[in-house]
Structures are given as C-alpha cells and as structure tokens.
Amino acid sequence: MDAVEQAATKEAESSIDLLVIVLDTNPSQQFVRQSPQNLTQVLESIIAFGNAHLMQKAQNQLAVISCSHHSTDFLYPVPGRQVELRQIDGQYEAFSLVEKTVKQQLGNILMNAPRLSSPCESLLAGSMTMALCYISRLQRNVAAGAKMHSRILVVTGSNECASQYMTFMNVFFTAQKLGIVVDTCALDKTLSLLQQGCDITNGQFLKVTQLDGLLQYLLWVFLPAPQMRHKLVLPPPPKVDYRASCFCHRELIDIGYVCSVCLSVFCKYSPICTTCHTIFKTPGPLPIKPKKKKKVEKQM
C-alpha cells in the first residue's frame, strides 16, 4: 500500500458517515394498498439496513425521517427523553434503541393521522429539505479536524408529483453544493426527477423489482460509502433525460424558446410571456408577413 492510499484509508476510518433515510410512509402507495403487511416488511428492512450502517463504524450516525401524507417527522433520533431500554438477547443497545424508537414513533404518527379519503401525494421534496437542515446542523457542529460525509437515501413507492419540481431542484443543488449524495430506492415506478437528482449529486438510483428482496438490495447497493462505490460492480446509471418540458403543453422539447426575464420555456413563439406577462420584442417572424401581403396584392 502506498502512502496516498494509506492516508485515504486513515481518513476514511476517522471520518463520520451520516446516513439520513427518508422513508415514504404514505398509505396511498401502491404496495401498501396491495397489502398493509408490506409496509411492515419495508420498515423491518429499513431498520436492519440502518443498523447495518451503524455497525460499520463506531462514529457512524443515522437518522430516519418519515414522510407521510399529512406530515413529516423524525423517527430517529428523537429529541428529549429516550425510550426505556433493556438489553434483549445480548443485542447491542444502540440497535434496539433504533428499532424501538422508529417503531414507536411511526406507530404514534399512524395512529394520529387523519383518515385518508382519496389517494394523495407524498411531499418527498419537503422531507428532503428537512433532512438537509438536519445535516447542515450536524455538519456545523462537527469537531475541528474531523470530517463528515453525509448522504440521503430516499425509499419510496409513490408517484412523483410535478408540482414539487422547484423544491426538488433546490434540494438537489443544495446537496450538490454541500457534497451530500442523494440515493434513491424506488419501490414501484421509475422516478425521473429523483433520477436527475441522483445524477446531479453522483448518487445511485435503483428500482427494486421484488419487494421481498428489499433488504438484500439495500445492503448490496446502498450500504457501501459513496467513496468506495467506484470499486464495486453496481447497476449501471440509467440514461437521464435532461430535456425541459414546455410550460404551454408540458411536452418534452428539443428546441424551445426561453423568456429572457423569467426563464419559462415555450415550444412555440408567442408575443407575451404567460408566466411573467412580459411583452416581447418581435424578432424573426414579423418580417415574413409583409412579404406574404405583397404577394397577395400582386395576385389581385
């Protein structure tokens, strides 16, 4: 081992890895509607995965955020009083603390949740802003000299909602700026916005085809720290489509017109911007019109 590599290993050993799991607990997700048992299974996998992360290094830290249809809450850690703990079967206390707290908190949230009359979207982007606030606080408080690597893992089976586009983008750019990796584990559908986010922040996107093997997928793809992922054989990155969709018809376009004031995208030229009501100076299309008129005159 040469000196550079040795230094890198030493750095990796002393650094703190923070993993924030954003778990979608919305009951309108496809897999929950099929069978409520599935949510329990996903939760068990998440807890086991979280504990596996804590097990890797003594300094590692974990946070779990639940994103439900009515609110976003921290499942672990919870400020204030700790859950009462007794050692069970010789299990390391920190692990049973994670398990107990997460289950108890999620239980409270689900019991207090308002009844859901119709399926509604999960505000995942909002939950990610909360995760970023939490990470930025921990990063501010890191002791001098110590390094902290943070990442966010989103586990969701929801459809993504275009109304959260702006928040998602703000989240991705903030994460990119702070060097936070965003990973996504999609349980149901391919999510193009989160795919873009993973690409922007160098994270990993994975669509799980079989829910039964969730823990295995998690341990295989998302457990290794991002710094050592290039040494592993992981699923190839999907081709991300970065085309903009126009504001007028919501279609993906190759060539479009962009308003110089508010940067709205249109697929056709229009004399007034529908978003900021700016009136444009007409460039190209006008000179063509008089020509046509002339032709008509001549014919007449």
Partner: peptide
C-alpha cells in the same frame, strides 16, 4: 442557523413544503 440556511442556500421553506 436554519433561517440563514433556508434563505441563503436551500431557497425553499421547510414547513411550507412538508405540511400539505
């Protein structure tokens, strides 16, 4: 600290985006 972080870096209010 969150106030500054939200206004200078994140540009999205946490509450407004998490409370449906």
């Amino acid at each position: 600290d969150c106030d500054i972080f939200i206004h200078e870096t994140l540009h999205a209010c946490v509450g407004c985006n998490t409370i449906p």
